[in-house]
Every structure is written in structure tokens, then in C-alpha cells.
Simulated scan of single mutants.
Amino acid sequence: MRDLETFLHGAHVDDAVFELRPDYRALLVAVDGLAAVGSSSEDELLAAAERHAGALLETSPVDELPHIAAWREAYRAFGAKPQRTRNSLEALTRRAPDGLPRINALTDLYNAISVLHQLPIGGEDLDRYVGPPRLVRAAGNEAFDTVAGGADVVESPDPGEVVWCDDAGVTCRRWNWRQGRRTTLRDDSRSALFILDALDPMTDDELNAAADDLVDHLGRLGPDPRTARRLITNPNA
């Protein structure tokens, strides 16, 4: 049986990332013992997220929503152009009024929670990890497996780009822009890692409320799934 607490204890956010955004917090949620679920069981939650995004966009342009605006600033800090490579929260919020994607139960779940609580969330297959997760500024020679033009390719991030990685390569580029294929959640995933990203003005209470909502719904996707969580904050803040 996997020791989730030990796995999370090995997670690390590099000081160079906190230098970009001293207010950054990563809340990691690890879960084991999930049942294999193919088609989405989260239609009601997705529909609620779509309605919520629609209501937000009736009162404010998407790039002026508080947490999306904060992530746009964070992207500019490491040289990314947020109008070209949108953080995952912005991409989903823009898409939600016309319908969020239906992929699989786990992915649909965290996408819905992301929109409802207005924070970027990434989901990874824990069984496909090689070593613990680390958030670093890339050297530029790391491997990132993705799809381009319908073909499988291996790319490298830009030097200085903020990336999540493990011992085998990059798992997510540009902080929370695009996830790699190797650790993508699948219909038969039984263990998962969820990364909830927060910047000011999001509070720790709001961040934990999003994690509570996620864990509550995860509890319905297995007979008795085990979960653990860890909040990583700036040690110099």
C-alpha cells in the first residue's frame, strides 16, 4: 500500500519560484484506492461550473477576474505571454459557458472544482510518477512528452520557465498551462495527485475549501479511497 504522506513529504517548490511570486501556495492532495470509472459521473457538477462561469463573465471580463488576473501577472514574471498560453483556470473559465470538456470522471471532477472555486488545478496519475513532484525553473533541456500536429513528440521547456517535474521529466509546463501525456489521468487510474495553485488574493481558507470539495467528491469514486494533503508555502514569507 502506498504511503501517501511520505510521497507528499518529498514534494518541493524551489526558492527561485517563490522569488517570482512570494505569495504562491501549492496544496497537494494525494489519493489512493480509486475505482476504475470510465464515463463521467460528474455531469451535475460540470453543469454547475458552467453556470458559475457564465455568471462571473456577465459582470467582468475574464482577464479581470481576480485570480485569473493574478495568474496572468505570474506568467509575465517568467516571460510567458498570457494571451497566447493561458493558465488552466482562464482556459476553462473562457470555455465553460459554451460547455466544459467531458474527458473522464477524475479529469471532469477537478476541472469542475477548478471553475467553481476559481483556481488552477492539475490532476496526475500517481502510479506513473518517478520520484516526488517538484516545481522549478527549467534549465531548458528537460523532456516533456506531448502531442503536436496529431503526432507524439518530446519537447523541452524554455529556460527559466516554471515547470512541475519528477525524476523522469516535466509533468506540466508553464506552471499550470499544459500537462504531459505520461502522467495523464486515465479511465483506469487508481491513484492520483492533484495540485491546487493559489496566489493572492485567494486566501488559505478559500484554498482549503476547494480541497475539501475535491476530497468530498473523490470519496464517491471508490469504496474507501485514502487521501492525504500537504500545503507548501514560501518559507521566507
Score class of each variant (00 low, 15 high):
residue 33 G to M: 11
residue 73 E to Q: 09
residue 217 H to Y: 13
residue 235 P to A: 03
residue 150 G to E: 01
residue 205 D to I: 11
residue 169 G to M: 05
residue 54 G to S: 14
residue 235 P to V: 03
residue 172 C to T: 11
residue 91 A to I: 04
residue 107 T to L: 10
residue 1 M to F: 01
residue 189 S to Y: 10
residue 11 A to Y: 10
residue 104 N to D: 06
residue 196 L to D: 04
residue 92 L to N: 05
residue 32 D to S: 15
residue 84 R to P: 00
residue 5 E to A: 15
residue 78 F to Y: 01
residue 157 P to M: 09
residue 216 D to N: 11
residue 140 G to L: 04
residue 67 H to I: 05
residue 113 I to A: 13
residue 126 L to C: 10
residue 8 L to C: 14
residue 115 V to K: 05
residue 179 Q to T: 07
residue 98 D to F: 08
residue 33 G to Y: 10
residue 204 D to G: 14
residue 192 A to F: 10
residue 197 D to G: 15
residue 99 G to R: 07
residue 209 A to F: 07
residue 156 S to D: 00
residue 146 T to H: 05
residue 165 C to I: 12
residue 10 G to R: 10
residue 211 A to T: 09
residue 127 D to M: 11
residue 229 R to M: 08
residue 187 D to V: 14
residue 146 T to E: 00
residue 234 N to Q: 03
residue 84 R to D: 02
residue 113 I to Q: 06
residue 117 H to E: 04
residue 132 P to N: 13
residue 158 D to I: 15
residue 60 S to R: 14
residue 189 S to V: 13
residue 192 A to Y: 08
residue 75 Y to H: 02
residue 6 T to D: 13
residue 221 L to N: 09
residue 112 A to G: 14
residue 202 M to P: 14
residue 206 E to R: 10
residue 15 D to R: 15
residue 136 V to Y: 01
residue 124 E to I: 15
residue 116 L to S: 06
residue 215 V to E: 08
residue 44 E to P: 03
residue 76 R to A: 06
residue 21 R to N: 01
residue 111 N to C: 13
residue 81 K to C: 01
residue 65 L to W: 07
residue 9 H to A: 07
residue 213 D to M: 13
residue 70 A to D: 02
residue 122 G to D: 03
residue 85 T to E: 05
residue 102 R to P: 01
residue 57 L to K: 05
residue 55 A to C: 02
residue 34 L to N: 07
residue 171 T to P: 01
residue 159 P to L: 08
residue 161 E to A: 11
residue 64 E to G: 03
residue 108 D to Q: 12
residue 82 P to E: 04
residue 128 R to Y: 09
residue 112 A to V: 12
residue 19 E to W: 04
residue 99 G to L: 04
residue 83 Q to P: 00
residue 65 L to I: 15
residue 12 H to E: 00
residue 149 G to F: 01
residue 86 R to L: 00
residue 48 A to H: 07
residue 221 L to H: 15
residue 98 D to T: 14
residue 43 D to E: 15
residue 224 D to N: 14
residue 154 V to N: 00
residue 12 H to L: 13
residue 134 R to F: 09
residue 197 D to V: 10
residue 178 R to H: 02
residue 21 R to Q: 08
residue 34 L to H: 14
residue 36 A to V: 12
residue 149 G to H: 02
residue 133 P to I: 15
residue 182 R to C: 07
residue 59 T to P: 00
residue 153 V to P: 04
residue 32 D to E: 14
residue 141 N to Q: 06
residue 171 T to G: 10
residue 137 R to G: 09
residue 164 W to R: 07
residue 140 G to P: 08
residue 164 W to A: 05
residue 1 M to Q: 06
residue 189 S to D: 05
residue 211 A to F: 14
residue 76 R to P: 05
residue 52 H to W: 02
residue 88 S to W: 00
residue 9 H to K: 10
residue 32 D to I: 11
residue 172 C to Q: 03
residue 176 N to W: 02
residue 74 A to D: 00
residue 79 G to M: 08
residue 136 V to K: 02
residue 6 T to H: 11
residue 11 A to W: 03
residue 139 A to S: 14
residue 226 R to D: 05
residue 215 V to I: 15
residue 11 A to T: 07
residue 97 P to R: 12
residue 51 R to Y: 02
residue 12 H to V: 09
residue 117 H to M: 08
residue 39 S to G: 13
residue 20 L to M: 04
residue 75 Y to T: 01
